[in-house]
Design a binder for these strands. Structure first.
Lengths: 151, 151
DNA sequence: GCTGAAAGAGGTGATAG
DNA sequence: CTATCACCTCTTTCAGC
């Protein structure tokens, strides 16, 4: 993990379809050397996956909201995590410090989708209370990768 | 934007280096058709970029925190947005409903990095008050894409 | 760990159906 | 949209430093 590795990861983050020769020119290495480094970075898990950043709006998930979640005292936290991990609306779910237990970011198609999301969790008694903040506009956002079963 | 387009985007989200023939086999189309659709999706902005999901820990940004930001009444909001957009620590910055103005997610290498981040913004009078929640563990997280040299 | 060259896979863009 | 083909860039490998 030297400085050239970092440059390569940044390069790939901007456009992972650039040719090895191109990247080599940018970082001052031959194609073979770049190829070997990328292989190593992927094998080591520094690069987790080659993916795309998609437009949530175009995929029917134009509304983002942050939901703070409080679990019940006797909550099955493992069950909550399992459901959250597989939930199609959830873009991010972090266990956090402070008065709430989890901070969840969801992406849905409409405001009704937010209500449906909360209903689903509350009906299954996975969360006890929540507070929701809706995103009005975006200044910076990480890549969006749609979930789903795609053989 | 039909169902096959959606499947293709999901496919590419899982591994954007799969061959066109592979994807064609998965969605039931020829390589030519898949090639044409991907070109169209990229041109239309449904696919914004081909990128990588990297491991923040390996890149010295193992700590995630959420910072709620309140701007001063006379704040220069455009300046705040410009600085946020280019800030290397900021992974996400959304204008949100509720008592705070912005919700920012940062990734830094240490707790000291959080303090330095807050100091930087407060010294420049870009934010008036803030509240910080630190991520203890991650259940779901979007792709992480390291930013280039401070620009 | 790197280079450079050679071999091979796969993307690209045409064709016709 | 499918099927095929020729073209050709890019990836991959390997000998050698």
């Amino acid at each position: 993990m030297d400085d050239i590795d970092r440059q390569i990861v940044i390069c790939l983050g901007e456009d992972c379809r650039r040719s090895l020769a191109d990247i080599g020119g940018a970082v001052g290495l031959s194609t073979s050397a770049v190829n070997e480094r990328i292989r190593r970075l992927a094998a080591a898990g520094v690069i987790r996956r080659f993916t795309v950043d998609a437009d949530p709006e175009a995929l029917g998930r134009g509304i983002a909201a942050f939901v703070f979640v409080g679990l019940a005292a006797d909550a099955d936290e493992a069950a909550f995590r399992a459901v959250a991990a597989g939930h199609p609306d959830i873009v991010e779910c972090q266990h956090v410090t402070g008065g709430w237990n989890y901070l969840i970011k969801i992406r849905v198609g409409s405001l009704a989708g937010i209500e449906a999301f909360l209903d689903g969790f509350k009906r299954r008694r996975l969360i006890a209370r929540s507070e929701t903040m809706i995103a009005l506009s975006t200044v910076v956002e990480p890549p969006f990768r749609p979930k789903g079963e795609a053989t």
